[in-house]
């Protein structure tokens, strides 16, 4: 059974979103996603300053088996990325909700956050998958 922290938000495409005190968001992939992908060996995150449209493919994670797109859960500007992932993609496996965060976003419209799934909603997505 995969770990789904109660204090995060989620989307059905297996990204998690953490609301920071300053209104910005940290984004990564869920424990379920990393488990399904297997050992991750390469990560490509969006460039700082890039303006993302909701649901666009903006990052790539590659496991030993295959490459997968990671989608922007909501619109906004990338204000920081996790540089450590370039040299240590395994952080996505070992600590997907912590050291494995991928990028930080300033949301274009903070109200979009209300459209995201909570932990119970995401758990339901996994059950019915």
């Amino acid at each position: 059974m995969s770990n789904i922290p109660a204090d995060l938000k989620y989307v059905t495409s297996h990204e998690w979103i953490k609301l920071q005190a300053d209104g910005t968001l940290l984004i990564g992939i869920t424990d379920h996603a990393q488990g399904a992908l297997g050992d991750l060996v390469f990560v490509d995150v969006p460039k700082v300053g890039r303006v993302l449209v909701a649901h666009e493919a903006c990052a790539v994670v590659e496991s030993v088996k295959a490459a997968s797109d990671v989608y922007a859960p909501l619109a906004g500007e990338v204000i920081a990325v996790n540089e450590a992932l370039a040299g240590a993609p395994e952080l996505l496996n070992s600590d997907p909700y912590g050291a494995g965060w991928m990028w930080q976003l300033r949301p274009a419209n903070p109200a979009d956050i209300d459209t995201l799934l909570d932990a119970a909603g995401y758990a339901k997505v996994l059950e019915t998958a």
Partner: peptide, 8 residues
Amino acid sequence: MTLSDNRV
């Protein structure tokens, strides 16, 4: 992302 488990 899109996850598939390759099972048929």
